[in-house]
Design a binder for these strands. Sequence first.
DNA 1: GCCAACGTTGGC
DNA 2: GCCAACGTTGGC
Length: 221
Amino acid sequence: MPPKKRLRNLRTLNTNGDTEKEVSSSPKPSLKRKDSSSAMALEGTSTEQYCRWLMKSEPESRFENGIDVKFGIEDLKALPDQTSCWDGVRNYQARNFMRQMKEGQLAFFYHSNCKEPGIAGIMKIVKEAYVDHTQFDKKDVHYDASSKPENPKWSMVDVQYQRMLKRFLPLAELKKYHLQHMTKGGPLKDVMLFTRARLSVQPLTAEEFDFVLNLEDQEPL
DNA sequence: GCCAACGTTGGC
DNA sequence: GCCAACGTTGGC
């Protein structure tokens, strides 16, 4: 979904990125809760603290109003600084999760809507939520006529490529673990990739993230 | 390309 | 505030 470059001076942070608890301290951009969509899910209502993320994007060409929305991990890697803004998110729950992201946190780059959906690599949040300028751009695929500059609806973050996984983790394989964990218990039982399949930006606990990451060293299930 | 699941919109 | 109609996501 999000092509567009947004260069960013990288600070150096150790790449495990963050502390486990960065909860209440988060000074949310105090925007007026005026988005009155009933679906305007639970911003920060959860006390659950997420510190890792999964973000979806389409690695294969697809044209929306004549514009190619392709943006795979290789595209991110190819940009200056291997950094991009993650624009074009137009779902409140996904947006709210982006607003909770902290600099230095890690996210899986997930390839969606393609031949082989799954997790391709890892990136790092290098700039916390700010206004997504594409919402005001009539030429942009994700232009939102209902959003006014005085009160922007949509946010984005900047992400920087970290590395590919040692092997691609296909959705089909992850699903098998999910199934297992639902019956026998295990870290993937509640992962939103399965329980909220359409959410394009979603949180992972450290335990969930680490379990998935460890799979790169395992034989495919 | 199909279509199920689900988020959003708008009439009432 | 409900809910039917509509639009989108994304796996298959």
